[in-house]
């Protein structure tokens, strides 16, 4: 079994009397991509926020590298976990280089230079461009570069492909896959089941704040539970090279 980098045990969180996450346990393993799937309101994003420490669980605990998340100094935690938020719109019109510097600020020794970081994300020509002038794909690359600047061993991306076209979404997922292949523990909240099928090693299916099942993609995506949770009947097409494509049967 791969090394567990981040683990949530029996996590629960309610807001205004409504339970958003109820007793969910999951683990992010080094070298693996965990996909979190489920319909709107299933508690995927809340689970993500609990795992990265943006929300404090009302029950259960989160362990980072075997130590309670809350016990980590904030700055160290910021360098260990990269969190790509679902929505990001800076309040000021930062330039790309300014955004990357803010990301690099939390990296310790051995952090890449601005130019090297920009090169990794193909942002060299965009460094002096302002956020407001970037396309959706350029924005995603700039934000990802800022978040991943300290090369965090744990990465959680909350619907990172939501505003991207098909090619940009695939490129972003490929980048996250590459991070995992390099030894990072990656979790992705993802709406597109085909992206989940293509890029994830394990899938956590959620419904109404609870974990329905967690297993390999083939097992979860072929499960009748998937149809029930999404209240639709999926047509599953096996691909010759392995994997599958899902579409609502109509």
């Amino acid at each position: 079994m791969a090394e567990v980098a981040l683990e949530g045990k029996g996590l629960a969180f309610s807001a205004g009397g409504t339970p958003l996450v109820q007793g969910v346990s999951t683990a992010l393993e080094r070298g693996r991509v965990l996909g979190v799937i489920g319909p709107n309101g299933a508690g995927k994003s809340t689970l993500g926020k609990l795992l990265v420490g943006q929300l404090a669980p009302q029950a259960g605990e989160v362990m980072l590298m075997g130590r309670p998340l809350a016990a980590w100094p904030r700055r160290e935690r910021a360098a260990l976990i990269g969190h790509l938020p679902q929505h990001f719109e800076p309040h000021w019109d930062y330039r790309v280089d300014e955004l990357l510097r803010l990301g690099l600020d939390r990296a310790g020794r051995g952090a890449p230079t601005l130019e090297v970081l920009a090169g990794h994300f193909d942002l060299g020509a965009l460094l002096k461009r302002h956020w407001s002038t970037l396309s959706g794909g350029e924005r995603a690359r700039a934000l990802t570069a800022a978040v991943l600047a300290p090369d965090p061993p744990v990465v959680l991306a909350d619907e990172p492909a939501a505003a991207l076209d098909v090619g940009q979404a695939a490129a972003l997922m490929a980048r996250l896959r590459k991070l995992a292949d390099g030894g990072a523990a990656v979790a992705v909240v993802v709406h597109d089941l085909n992206l989940a099928a293509r890029w994830c090693d394990r899938l956590l299916l959620m419904e109404a704040g609870r974990a329905v099942t967690e297993a390999g993609p083939a097992e979860v995506l072929n499960s009748p539970e998937l149809d029930r949770v999404f209240a639709t009947r999926f047509q599953r097409v096996a691909l010759p090279e392995g994997g599958m494509v899902l579409a609502p049967a109509g």
Binding site: Q54, R75, A79
Partner: peptide, 20 residues
Amino acid sequence: ARGLDLLGLGEGVAESFGLP
């Protein structure tokens, strides 16, 4: 200054970048 710069990224991102 640094905290205000981080806050400009939004509270969630600022938090995840280490700002209390």
